[in-house]
Design a protein around this nucleic acid. Structure first.
Ligand SMILES: [Mn+2]
Ligand SMILES: [Mn+2]
Ligand SMILES: [Mn+2]
Ligand SMILES: [Mn+2]
Lengths: 219, 219
DNA sequence: AAATAAAGTTAGATATGTCTAACTTTGAAG
DNA sequence: CTTCAAAGTTAGACATATCTAACTTTATTT
């Protein structure tokens, strides 16, 4: 039985693993906002439960069991987000914080029923994939808007950061999942991008914004 | 900030207070299934936070702050039960255990929205009153079926025990809130009661069943 | 290769929630 | 009014999750 704190460590490990597959104690400590001894202790406990592999002074790695355990927590989180959005009528900018609590509910029945009501959904309100009951999730091959190098047409597919402030900014700008953007120019100096879409003639996005948007190029 | 364990102590104190207004350490320990030193320690902490009044060797009493705090947890529990029942389609026998987890979610927004969706309900699926945001709840004047002394007609208004097994028993017998029962005879020897209702010609209820059913006499 | 910074570990402490064993107070019976 | 069981308390322990300060190992830089 993962306690909710351990579940949070597992989630952090999952996301930090996405780059290189391994995670340093320091990285994990920063992500969890705890000291190095704390994370060191916790890693020993996670290793004892078979969720991570760890040899002294070496970087940490999630085991396949650990990956599955993490995916099942992420599943609960994202199902909750979609439920809050679709069934309860919350805005996409409100759901993350509530889901952060709901994801620790143990009742399998609860999430089972949510899954049914939502017709076994595959994406959450921010466009992130929802793992299935086995912990498997699709891995869409989107590009970051900031990585597009020449003018073209793209569709907004997912948001990398589901913090309230950023999503409120997108609301103001009328940017939603599915919105099609015409990229008119890319400023190589600071990486800012000029786009037009819907009723918006021109919006200049800084690199820090465009690097949080996953898009798909439209042929 | 009550931790979820303290919230459970508050709830237990609330229910144990209903009889005499005061609670012994031993009673509270039995209800929470913890040892006397554990409950003794906890009571000191609850007293330090102003939720209970306690002098050495004396029985415990919830303060008005404690009563309110308890009522707000009960509010979350009962709102959750009704939400699970009404919106998510769970049976009344399934909702208690899930609500036991949901009641500890901190997000006010979540329960706010639930309250709105349910149109500010006053009773949960077991007929228990839902406290309002101030912690006030109606106190219906029902009688226990076991307290009825002579044959008459009553309506089932609330269930005293929301455990799965008892509610499944009621499901089997087709007994629901609102069901009208004709009491045909009362056996003074063992307190068993003969009732008829709907398509059921005769059901003999033991005292242990009839003492879990709140009813209202129909003129 | 030596010096040094970064990363990781150990030691010792604190807070919360729990336990058992032993002791004290209270109150009910005799 | 003594006796004694029940109720309550204290002492000392353990598990979990956290901290700071100090130490060790690894890796990078000169
Ligand atoms: Mn989220
Ligand atoms: Mn999301
Ligand atoms: Mn309940
Ligand atoms: Mn109920």
């Amino acid at each position: 039985m993962p306690t909710s704190i351990k579940e949070n460590y597992l989630k952090a490990l999952h996301f930090l693993s996405l780059q290189s597959g391994v995670v340093s104690l320091t990285e994990l400590g920063n992500a969890m906002e705890v000291s190095k001894p704390t994370v060191n202790d916790m890693v020993k406990k996670l290793a004892a439960r078979g969720w991570v592999k760890h040899e002294r002074y070496q970087p940490i790695q999630l085991t396949s069991e650990g990956h599955k355990a993490a995916a099942l927590v992420i599943r609960k989180h994202r199902l909750s987000e979609l439920f809050l959005y679709q069934v309860m009528g919350f805005g996409w900018e409100e759901v993350h914080d509530i889901a952060e609590e709901m994801e620790h509910i143990k009742s399998e029945l609860f999430f089972q029923r949510m899954d049914e009501m939502l017709r076994f959904p595959v994406f959450d309100p921010h466009g992130s994939p929802i793992p299935d009951k086995a912990g498997n999730m699709v891995t869409p091959t989107y590009q970051l808007l900031s990585q597009i190098s020449s003018p073209c047409r793209v569709a907004l597919k997912a948001i990398r950061n589901s913090g309230t402030d950023f999503l409120k900014y997108l609301n103001e700008k009328n940017l939603q999942l599915g919105t099609e953007l015409e990229i008119s120019s890319i400023e190589s100096f600071d990486g800012s991008i000029s786009v037009s879409y819907g009723h918006c003639e021109q919006l200049v996005m800084s690199h820090s914004v465009s690097s949080l948007l996953w898009v798909e190029v439209i042929l």
